[in-house]
Computed example of a mutant assay.
Amino acid sequence: MTDRPFLLAAGGTGGHLFPAAALAQELARRGHAVELATDTRAEKYGVEFPARAIHRIPSATIASRSPIGMAKTFSRLGMGYLGALRLLKRVGPKAVIGFGGYPTLPPIFAARTLRIPTAVHEQNAVMGRANRLLSRYVDRVALSFSPTKYLGPKAQPKAIVTGTPVRDAVLAVRDVPYVPPEPASRFLLLVFGGSQGAHFFAELLPQALDLLPSAFRWRLTLVQQAREEDLVGLRHYYEEAGLAAHLASFFRDLPERIAQAHLVIARSGASTVAELMAIGRPAILVPLPHALDNDQLENATRLEQGGGGWCIRQSELSPERLAAELERLFGSPGLLASAAAKSKAMAETEAVTKLADLAEALAGSKETKE
């Protein structure tokens, strides 16, 4: 097979798919074919994924410890494994690289069965459950942070820190300079999050803005991602309050909007933090509460420790607290500019190059043995 591809495997969320897309773009620039294995959740992202083929592999998350729940989960994973075996025999990939989430389990284990080189990439400061399991068996482990929590002893010798690769759309605005707001000028606030984050911000933000002095409210231009069911209520509130606001359930040009923002309020998923650092924008990060292993809290804490933003737990973020933070930051352009610079200094600018080099090295090791 002369045009054997790299097969990337990723769970069907932006946090897993975006870094996979960044690697796919870089591999394509180097002349390689790329295919993607994911699940049905990827529909909203998969249309634009830079792969010559997208394969849906049956998978399941271990959500219930009951005997019936576990049996259903392992049955579906078994179906996924058999489907992945058939796929890999047909496609004949050079290497299989996973980006986390349970949909990566079947392709990686199938690749091991067929002796195809494997690697996983961990985007968070905490190893995810699927990657934690797979890291024992794959050939290489790529990390975004050093240290990374729960990196097991068997995985440590084969681990390398590459950083989290970001998409071309992010790199395209990386050189847009941060211009701090001037006194009495407009202040652009960008607010976004996953479905839970979007709903929490939709409830919190209007209450917080009501508490801002009018001198700050009239300066504000708000760009906010919200769930479909929250959009009508938010539009009504902002119109009644006389606030300039642009609302949508999903922003396909989010990197450009990050680059335009004076301040970002967001969850702290790995891709979000990586894109904020790559573009260099200050942020108030509100980690998703009750997340397994507190991975978002770890990500936000790393950014805060580097001076690139402020981590506030959801349980501690009242409307009064948010209003006070916004007023403080609105009136401190120097502080915002400093945080923007420190955020950008934390970015791993060669992440996608390092990860593509790792992928080519994996494929080369297989070809050398053959």
Rank of each mutant, 00 (worst) to 15 (best):
L276Q: 13
A356N: 13
D139A: 07
L231I: 15
S338Y: 07
A266T: 12
E325W: 14
R227L: 14
G194V: 10
L234I: 09
A33V: 08
A110D: 01
L105D: 02
E275L: 05
A60W: 00
L23Q: 03
A63Q: 14
A155I: 09
E256Y: 10
I258H: 01
S66P: 09
G12H: 01
A261I: 05
F74H: 01
I57H: 00
L234N: 14
P147Q: 03
T221W: 10
F145I: 15
T40P: 04
P181Y: 00
Q196D: 10
L204V: 11
V176S: 05
D39L: 00
L27N: 12
R115S: 05
P165R: 02
F216Y: 14
F200S: 08
P213W: 12
W218E: 15
A341D: 06
V166M: 03
A169M: 05
G12C: 04
R65E: 10
F251G: 00
T61F: 03
T104P: 00
F216Q: 04
R76D: 00
E203P: 11
G306E: 13
A198V: 07
P206G: 09
E298G: 02
P117Y: 08
G46K: 04
Y178L: 08
G83A: 15
G307P: 03
A359Q: 00
A291Q: 07
S64Q: 12
T113F: 11
R174C: 06
A361C: 00
R186M: 06
R56K: 03
S185I: 03
V120C: 08
Y81Q: 00
Y45N: 02
T301C: 00
Y81F: 15
L222D: 12
A172V: 12
P117Q: 11
A274P: 14
G233K: 14
R252E: 14
A53D: 12
H236A: 15
S64G: 03
L77N: 07
Y178D: 08
L134E: 00
S66R: 06
A244Q: 15
T40D: 09
V126L: 04
T349V: 13
L358I: 07
G12W: 00
L220A: 02
T164Y: 06
L326E: 10
A111E: 05
S318K: 05
Q25E: 15
H16D: 09
A361I: 05
K72Y: 09
S146T: 12
D39S: 10
Q296T: 11
A51G: 08
A20P: 04
E256K: 15
A172F: 08
D139M: 02
R56E: 09
D175W: 03
K94A: 07
K158I: 11
L231M: 07
V264F: 04
G11S: 13
E229T: 09
D210P: 06
G15N: 06
